[in-house]
Write a protein that binds this DNA or RNA. Sequence first.
DNA 1: TCAGGTCAACTGGTCTAACCACTATACCTG
DNA 2: CAGGTATAGTGGTTAGACCAGTTGACCTGA
Lengths: 236, 236
Amino acid sequence: MATNLWEPIRPPGSLAARIAARVEDMLTQEQLKPGDQLPPERELAAMLGVSRPSLREAIRSLAARGRLVVRHGQGVFVEEPALTKRLTSSMVSDEHSVDELYAMREVLEVPAAGWAAKNIDEAGIERLKQAYDLLTEAGARNADWDELQRLDASFHEAVVRVAGNRFLLRTLGVLNEIMVAGMETTLRHPGRLAQSAREHAAILNAIQDGDSRAARAAARAHIRSAHAAALRYVES
Amino acid sequence: MATNLWEPIRPPGSLAARIAARVEDMLTQEQLKPGDQLPPERELAAMLGVSRPSLREAIRSLAARGRLVVRHGQGVFVEEPALTKRLTSSMVSDEHSVDELYAMREVLEVPAAGWAAKNIDEAGIERLKQAYDLLTEAGARNADWDELQRLDASFHEAVVRVAGNRFLLRTLGVLNEIMVAGMETTLRHPGRLAQSAREHAAILNAIQDGDSRAARAAARAHIRSAHAAALRYVES
DNA sequence: TCAGGTCAACTGGTCTAACCACTATACCTG
DNA sequence: CAGGTATAGTGGTTAGACCAGTTGACCTGA
C-alpha cells in the first residue's frame, strides 16, 4: 500500500468524521480492496497527523457500518461488502448447470453492454481500452491460460464498471468467481481465442461509439459463442 | 433519566462494543426515547466505569448507525427513528441508488417471467397460484404491511423458482433482502396495493398461458410502476 | 530429527489527565 | 431594553503509558 495515500488530515470539521470519510472514499475508489490490511493504528495515526484515540473513533464508526473489521492482536482489515459475501456463500455451494450459468450471464451482460454504451465517457473509454489492450497483448505473446482468463474476466468487469450499476457489478463478480472456480476456461479450444478477441473488439467498438443496440447485440453474440464453446468442452 | 440504568460494564468482550450493545438494548426497550439526551460523556464514563475515550468509541459506533446524534457543545441525543430510517435508506440509496436497484430488478425479473412461461407445468401453476392467492387474500383482509410485503416477495420468488435458474433465484433473493431492509415498502401509497394486485394477476395469467412474450411485458410493467412508486416515496 | 514449550515482537484495547473549541445563557453595560 | 461579554457546560483532541490477544521464531529435550 502506497504510504502517500495517507496524507495528513486537513483542518475543518471533526477529525473522526473526516478520517472515516477519507477511508470510505478510498474504499469506493478501490484504493483499498476487501481483505487489505490497514497500517497499525500507531503508524496510521502518525501518518494522518492525528492522535490514536481520534483515529480509533474513526475506525469504530467504519466498523459499525461494516466497512472494516478489527481483529485484536492482528490488525484492521477491509471488510468484504455484505452483498458480495451473501451472494458468494449462497451460490458457491451447489452445482449449477452450464446452461443456467450462461443464461444468467446473458441476462446480465447484455444490458451491461447497453448501459455502458449509453454512459460512455473519456474515462470509460480509457478503462475499456486498457483492459482490452492488456488482453490482446497477452494473447499475442501466448501468455499462459490463467493470465488470459484473468484478463478476459477483467475486460468484462470493465464493461460492467462503465455500465455503472453496482448491483450488477457485484453479481457478475460472483458469477465470474464461480466460473473460474467451477470450470476450466473455454479459451483453450482451437480458434476460440481468436474468435473471442474479435467479439471483444466488436463490443468495445460499439460501446465507444455509444451505440447501445450494437453493444447489446455484440455482447449477446459473445456470450452465446462462449456458451457453445463451454458445451463442447463439457462434452469432450 | 434514572441513574441506575447506567450500571458499570462487566468484564468480557470489547468495552466499546459492550457499551454500544447496552445502549442499543435500552433503545429497543424504549428506556431511551428519541430526543432524550444522554448524560455528559464524563459522567456517563464514570457511571459505566470506563474511560472517556472508550465511551466515545462506543458513541461513535452508534452514531455511525444513526442511533445517536452528537452535537458539539450541546450533548449526545437519541436520534428520531423516522430520521434514522431516512438515513439508512439514504445510505442504501447512496451506495446503491434506487434507480440502479430497479434497473437490476428489471434485468433479472423480466427474463425470469419469460422463462417461467416457457417452463410452466402443473406443479408450477400450483405454486404460483398459491403464492398469488395468499397475497390477494391478505390484501383483501387488510393485513399489516409487513405481511403484505413478505407475501409480495414470495410471489416474485415463486416466479423465479418456476423459471428454474438457481443463479437467478439466489441473486434476486439477496436483492429482495436489500429492498426490505433498506427502504420502506412502496405498497403503502394510495392505490398502489390495488394496482400491484392487477399487475401480479397479469403476470400470473401470462405465465399460466405459457405466453413468454406477454409474461415479459407484464413483469416489465410491474417493475416500472413499482420503481415509479419508490421514487415518489424517496421524494416525499 | 522433531515435538513441544517458551518467549519476544507486533497488533489492538484501555486508561489518565489535561487542554481546546463550540454552544447557550446569565449578566452586565450603555 | 439592546447589545456585547463572561462563564459554565458540553463534546473534541492530545500524550504517553500500560494491558491483552496473536503469531512465529527459537530453544529445549526426547
